[in-house]
Design a protein around this nucleic acid. Sequence first.
DNA 1: TCCGATTAAATCGGACCCGATTTAATAATT
DNA 2: AATTATTAAATCGGGTCCGATTTAATCGGA
Lengths: 155, 155
Amino acid sequence: MTRSPKADGKGRKLSNFLCFAVYSANLAFGRAYKPILDAVGLTYTQYIAMVALAEADDLTVSALGEKLFLESNTLTPILKKLEQSGYISRARDPADERQVRVSLTKPGRRLLEKDLGGLLVEACGLGDEFPVVQKSVVRLRDNLLRNTKDKQDGT
Amino acid sequence: MTRSPKADGKGRKLSNFLCFAVYSANLAFGRAYKPILDAVGLTYTQYIAMVALAEADDLTVSALGEKLFLESNTLTPILKKLEQSGYISRARDPADERQVRVSLTKPGRRLLEKDLGGLLVEACGLGDEFPVVQKSVVRLRDNLLRNTKDKQDGT
DNA sequence: TCCGATTAAATCGGACCCGATTTAATAATT
DNA sequence: AATTATTAAATCGGGTCCGATTTAATCGGA
């Protein structure tokens, strides 16, 4: 045990922190995407939301939030902006007026066909490791979320 | 070639996006740290800034920003809060009044000795892979930043 | 049926992140 | 030495993130 950055007395350096690696890699992705997304008037989060919608359309805000690990407090303003931009549509579900259904519009779908994300695969510089790293980070995320869910009920 | 998420026609799913893996893992880290950091009145970014200062004290805002991949526009308000909390000190450098020197205080140093980050290593659930993933993500970040730096000068 | 839960979005305030600008101090040029 | 250029922080506005609350619609038990 004790695989902590410090482990044996010393070494508690920023460069050993996995959380910082992820934090700074996320900043780096945002900066790498910026020039590409600026050209089409999207932010990073807005783009990710659209990719999520490309898989499964006509989602409620909650359902979309589950895919994105976000809630309505964060999502609502983002979706409103995407609606203003004309890339998505928002409408109350007639069967349950509490819910708002979100879908890509034609222009939104057209934009995604350009595969803006693919432009950056090379910039990651991971070569064949790309899918390996991707899966490791997903596993990390899922472990963190699972081990964080208020575990005060030891079922 | 073509190691893009789409690659062979289809598969452009959110779950294949490395950027989304990193984005959501970063959210997960923030949530995992929250209860731990709430207890000492720090935010995630404030904590990371303190870890950076633990390695090399008496840094200027720019120098600290280089370690954190942030600039004064983001850092200044964070440092002001850390100063108010009593964990760091800020002072103009007498030799060059343009610069502000930042250092950990005694209470700040004491707080870091608790190794709050170490509490989460287990929650990552990566076992022996921990340092491997850590290094991969760092490499990813560095590649992205290098390949993004306005490369319009093909030296 | 009616009224108290429950549920889904939206709203609000505080804290990052960033591009762009401003302020103040130092360096460089003439 | 005085003016200009450069540099370091700070400021500002827009766009996330998030905990907490509010609003509105639906559900459920008496």
